[in-house]
Nucleic acid binder design. Structure first.
Lengths: 191, 191
DNA sequence: GTCTATAATGGGATAGAC
DNA sequence: GTCTATCCCATTATAGAC
């Protein structure tokens, strides 16, 4: 595998486990087995690396959301898939979504990274809003508020649930936090 | 005001705005107008300062929760007060709850701080669980799941809603995220 | 593309005078 | 309790050989 990809993978895991300050070029160098000066050949500055990181992450993430939307199923099915995506990302409570980690400490982030972060939230809210519009139409779940509000609540819930799960290093904390939302979905794929 | 209190106030604001790495002794020194070496007289290490910070914060926070519980009103009223507490803490989307900020980057935190953080979550969940037990009894809101699950969902929601609000520097994002939960509460204090 | 060597900065922390 | 002066270390980044 290319050094560049190895660096991105290693850095992504580090940020999701320990935050943007949670890794250094020295750490990366040790992990993939080169000297830290060599990293600057691939990413001149840490900010460059950060931008490449979030661009790669967002592309992969919304690719998965597209797959969910393209699949057959009710809005409830798709919301279940969305929740599973966030749950699986936890990796036993060791790490959270890249954008949850970056949102947490917005300091020391370049404007370009902040823009990508905003984009992630906007796109997520848009995707969820469409989902809740469909839910309203197909009746696969009960709504308490307008689709925009339900979308915002769902995003806040999964992000908060990831924080709690990592805080306790216990993925079942995520399940506990999302149980009430699951209960509102018409049963198609019980587990 | 004593130097010690000034330091704690200044540090708390910094952590809640920018995270645990978001301030240095040099920053604090500049802000309150002493030299950074003098800070070590009050807090020998940054870890010591962190512990004092979270102890002070937790005490004040649960004091407020106690006031809410002691006040008259239904479970729905108390949940509304709880939500308002988190909303007001946002300060126009500039900062989040201290423990949300610390949860975000669990790295570089001493074990003693992590213990206080766990305590915060446990106590919060316990307080909310009792609240939802009361809600079940007084019928002031509709439950979708057992009180433990509702408590966990509520905590995840407010923490996530704070993250989203700060990410967009817009406190109305918090309102949007909590609208659906508000809609489940029997109307006593509409706004 | 990777290396060695070397800035240059900023962080937390200590000693000792006042 | 606050100061000056200093230390030690980690981190990002650069220059130039291979």
């Amino acid at each position: 595998m290319s050094t560049r990809i190895s660096l991105l993978q290693s850095a992504e895991q580090a940020v999701r486990q320990r935050g943007y300050h949670g890794f250094s070029y020295a750490d990366l160098a040790r992990e993939i087995g080169i000297r830290k000066a060599s990293i600057h050949h691939h990413f001149p500055t840490k900010a460059d690396l950060g931008i490449a990181l979030i661009e790669r992450y967002n592309a992969a993430f919304f690719d998965q959301l597209k797959n969910i939307k393209d699949a057959e199923g009710t809005a409830a099915d798709q919301l279940r898939a969305y929740l599973r995506l966030y749950r699986d990302a936890l990796d036993n409570g060791e790490q959270v979504c890249l954008c949850v980690s970056l949102s947490a400490g917005r300091d020391h982030l370049s404007n370009e990274i902040l823009d990508h972060l905003d984009q992630f939230h906007r796109d997520s809210l848009h995707w969820l809003e469409q989902l809740f519009e469909r839910a309203k139409a197909d009746g696969s779940m009960s709504l308490h508020a307008a689709p925009e509000a339900e979308a915002s609540a769902a995003l806040a819930l999964v992000e908060g649930a990831q924080l709690l799960a990592r805080a306790s290093r216990d993925v079942t904390q995520f399940d506990q936090s999302t149980r009430a939302l699951h209960a509102r979905l018409s049963p198609n794929k019980p587990h």
